[in-house]
Amino acid sequence: MKKKTLEEVMKESPVTYEIYANMVDDGNRYEISDGVLELMSPAPTFIHQAISYELQYILNSSCRNEFIIVSSPIDVILSDTEVRQPDLVMVHRNRVSIISNRGINGAPDLVAEITSEHSRRRDKVTKRSVYARYQVPEYWIVDPSNFTLEQYVLDGDRYELAEVYAGDDTIHSKTAPCVSFSMNEIVRSLPVPPEMLE
């Protein structure tokens, strides 16, 4: 299959995973939202990347025997016309069959997004709705502006806000019982103090 340029892909309706996977690499990152190709926010900030690394590290320390933990970029192919790239993904090892070389085919057990001013609405409204529709059991939104973690748990076909964690609150998860850390642990592990990055 001949690789298509962004201009050619934008003319397709709907955009499918196959079309997206065969795009010419233009150096940008995209997601597919209900068959529409969407350019992702500008490159993540330093604090975003540092939190992502520390979060993956701390989860691997306690959960790697039970879960496969991967950070972005990784395609989560929820359907042929819905492809997302969460900042962090957890898949239980008894569901390893949903992982392929192209990405994760179906709903992971837990996804996390580290929000920013550019992505806040997308993370809190659009992606929350999408992840619920495709039955992702648990969704975290980590906010670096105030170092909180919002924990959403699936209830039927929608998310309920289970908890908002901050400071030394110990974060727990029914989806991943191995989880046990606090936002302060993440902050203390950052290579550069957050106040230096303002």
Score class of each variant (00 low, 15 high):
Asn101Pro: 04
Arg102His: 10
Arg102Lys: 15
Gly103Tyr: 00
Gly103His: 01
Gly103Glu: 03
Ile104His: 02
Gly106Asn: 07
Gly106Arg: 00
Pro108Gly: 10
Pro108Arg: 02
Val111Met: 05
Glu113Thr: 06
Glu113Tyr: 00
Ile114Gly: 04
Ile114Arg: 01
Ile114Ala: 08
Ser116Asn: 09
Glu117Leu: 14
Ser119Trp: 04
Arg120His: 12
Arg120Leu: 15
Arg122Asn: 10
Arg122Val: 12
Arg122Glu: 11
Asp123Phe: 00
Lys124Tyr: 08
Lys124Pro: 03
Val125Pro: 04
Thr126Asp: 10
Arg128Asn: 11
Arg128Met: 11
Arg128Tyr: 03
Ser129Ile: 14
Val130His: 01
Tyr131Ala: 07
Arg133His: 14
Arg133Ser: 14
Tyr134Gly: 12
Gln135Ala: 15
Gln135Lys: 15
Val136Trp: 00
Val136Asn: 01
Val136Cys: 07
Pro137Val: 08
Pro137His: 02
Glu138Gln: 10
Glu138Asp: 13
Tyr139Phe: 12
Tyr139Glu: 03
Asn146His: 12
Phe147Arg: 00
Phe147Pro: 01
Thr148Met: 09
Leu149Phe: 02
Leu149Val: 13
Leu149Gln: 03
Leu149Gly: 06
Glu150Gln: 11
Glu150Lys: 09
Glu150Tyr: 00
Glu150Gly: 13
Gln151Cys: 13
Gln151Ser: 13
Tyr152Phe: 14
Leu154Met: 12
Leu154Pro: 04
Gly156Ala: 13
Asp157Glu: 14
